[in-house]
C-alpha cells in the first residue's frame, strides 16, 4: 500500500510482476485485498493524514503477517526529513520485518527482499 510515496516504488513493484521479471513464477502474487495477503508492502513515509488508514489495513491482514518497507523514504524518511506532514518512517507505526532501500529499488532487489520475507514467514508458520 502507498502511504505517501511518489509512485516510483509502486510502479517498480508492478514491473516486478510483469513478464520481464515475472515474480509470479516464484509464487509471489499481488492480491487485491489485505484480507488475502501474507505480506504487506509499504511504500513511502507515513503522512499524518493516512496514519489511521494504514493501521486499519494492517489489522485486516490475517496472522502470521509480515511488513516489507520498499524504498529509502519509507525506511528513514529520506528526502522528506523536515516535513511537517510526516508522522514518521514506517517502523514508527508498524513492526517492520524487511527493509528494501533504494530510490526506487530495482525489481531484482524487490524479489530478493520478498524472498527474505518468505524465509521468515516459513519459520513463523512452523
Amino acid at each position: 500500500m502507498n502511504t505517501g510515496s511518489c509512485n516510483a516504488c509502486d510502479i517498480e513493484i508492478l514491473a516486478t510482476l510483469m513478464p520481464r521479471y515475472d515474480a509470479e513464477r516464484f509464487g509471489i502474487k499481488l492480491v487485491g485485498s489485505p484480507r488475502h495477503a501474507d505480506v504487506l508492502l509499504v511504500t513511502g513515509t507515513v503522512t499524518e493524514k493516512i496514519k489511521d488508514n494504514i493501521l486499519q489495513v494492517y489489522e485486516q491482514v490475517p496472522e502470521p503477517k509480515l511488513v516489507i518497507v520498499i524504498g529509502g523514504c519509507g525506511s528513514t524518511k529520506g528526502v522528506f526529513q523536515e516535513s511537517y506532514a510526516m508522522a514518521g518512517p514506517v517502523d514508527a507505526i508498524l513492526p517492520v520485518d524487511v527493509y528494501i532501500p533504494g530510490c526506487p529499488p530495482r525489481p531484482e532487489a524487490i524479489i530478493y527482499g520478498i524472498a527474505k520475507a518468505w524465509e521468515k514467514l516459513e519459520k513463523l508458520q512452523k
Partner: peptide
C-alpha cells in the same frame, strides 16, 4: 484541501518560519 484535521487552526504551513518544531 490537503492537511485534514491534524494541523491546529491558525497554523499556515507556508507562513511559519520553521517547519516541524514550531508546529
Amino acid at each position: 484541501l490537503f492537511t485534514g484535521n491534524y494541523l491546529p487552526d491558525g497554523v499556515y504551513p507556508l507562513r511559519t518560519p520553521k517547519s516541524k518544531e514550531s508546529m
